[in-house]
Simulated assay, not measured.
Amino acid sequence: MLLLKALIERYISDGQPVGSRALSKDSEFKLSPATIRNVMSDLEDLGLIHSPHTSAGRVPTVSGYRLFVDMLLTVKPLQSEEFLRLSKSLTAKDNPADVIGTASRLLSELTQMAGVVTLPKRELLYLRHIEFLPLSNTRVLVIFVTNEQEVHNKIITTSKLFTSPELQQAANYLNSVYSGKSLLTIREAVLKELQDDRERMNQVMLDAIKMAQLTFESSTEKEDFVLTGETNLMDFSELSDRDQLRQLFDAFSQKQGVIHLLDQCMKAEGVQIFIGEESGYQAFHHCSLVTSSYSVSDEVVGVLGVIGPTRMAYEKIIPYVDVTAKLLGAALNPKSASPS
């Protein structure tokens, strides 16, 4: 396995197929090129390396990278200046979108690859306050505040015309019952009340619940993400094929596949890595994604990560992603302590 580790590290560093002669010159191995060729042949039979085209050298397969990442990798901690740059940049801001954009940009700049951060899931936001303002006819402007300071606006169309006092009564009722609860909890409670408890509800309560349903019903919009530095991927020879690039950029623009892939990472703790076809998407067959979820108030709300070629320096990328996720969560939740 040490020979496989050396081969993969050399390939990641140089980007060229690695031959037995190159490995035999490594001072760590006191083996002849012939012996190394035999070992490489065994590794090839195991599906861990392969020979591209007619080259005498070998490159890792996805299985080889997976074994390397899971068992042979030595992760390097961030240097102090890198940590300071991240911690100074990822601080609490008035607009959470700004700190999310900063996290994506920093990941891209530090790795020279693409940095991606999903926006916090709406159902994991917590209602602090809601107001209704009358517009024309039956249109109502809803203003609601979530978490610490996030303000949202939405226009709903009601089934009847409401006066300003009636809208104020509805808002007062919803604030008294649902303030501090997650939007997901509110949606479920609203549906249950409309189905089960109509008879015990007075008209103010019923009107309020109906307006809450219009406000917090599941959005048909795709969950979004911030992607920065995707053009960096054009600089890697293994991703420079025109068809590969077109597939990759189409996947970025369509978003759905990327979101589905990143959503899988919310179900597991710590850093997650998809290598090549492990992603399940043709567009990412020559890419790796190193991701980590980030949390606000001890609840996972999103995922961030780095997208690059399978030939990436995993030992450096992993700590960038891990530390950035912790700092982003702390910045979005100023009451929490900064990670050490």
Rank of each mutant, 00 (worst) to 15 (best):
A251G: 01
H50T: 14
T138Q: 09
G64K: 01
T228C: 01
D98K: 11
G257Q: 00
G270S: 14
N38Q: 04
T220M: 10
N232C: 11
S295P: 07
T310V: 15
G19Q: 00
A114T: 07
K192L: 03
F162E: 14
S51L: 10
R242T: 09
P334F: 13
R58L: 08
R122T: 08
E148G: 06
K30A: 01
E278R: 08
I259H: 00
Q203I: 05
P60T: 02
K255Q: 05
V142N: 00
L135G: 07
Y178V: 14
L141I: 11
K267E: 10
S218P: 06
K326V: 11
S182C: 06
E223R: 15
T91Y: 09
E278L: 05
S253P: 13
M266R: 11
K222N: 13
H53A: 14
L43K: 08
Y173H: 12
S218I: 10
T157D: 11
F83Y: 13
G57K: 11
I155S: 15
L7I: 15
D197N: 01
K210I: 09
M201S: 03
I143M: 07
E150K: 08
R21P: 07
F132V: 08
V226N: 11
L2W: 13
G305A: 06
S338M: 09
S179H: 02
Y126G: 13
S41M: 13
Q264A: 03
D243L: 12
D263R: 00
A171K: 13
S164F: 05
D243Q: 14
F252A: 01
L73W: 00
T54F: 13
L23F: 00
I8S: 10
A22V: 05
R198W: 10
D26A: 11
N232R: 06
D241H: 03
G47N: 06
T324E: 12
Q247L: 02
M312S: 05
L127C: 13
D45L: 11
T163A: 14
E221H: 11
S218Y: 13
V258T: 02
H285I: 04
H285Q: 13
Y281S: 13
V303N: 01
T185P: 05
K222W: 12
L86A: 09
S80W: 08
K181G: 04
S32V: 02
N38K: 02
E44P: 04
L90C: 05
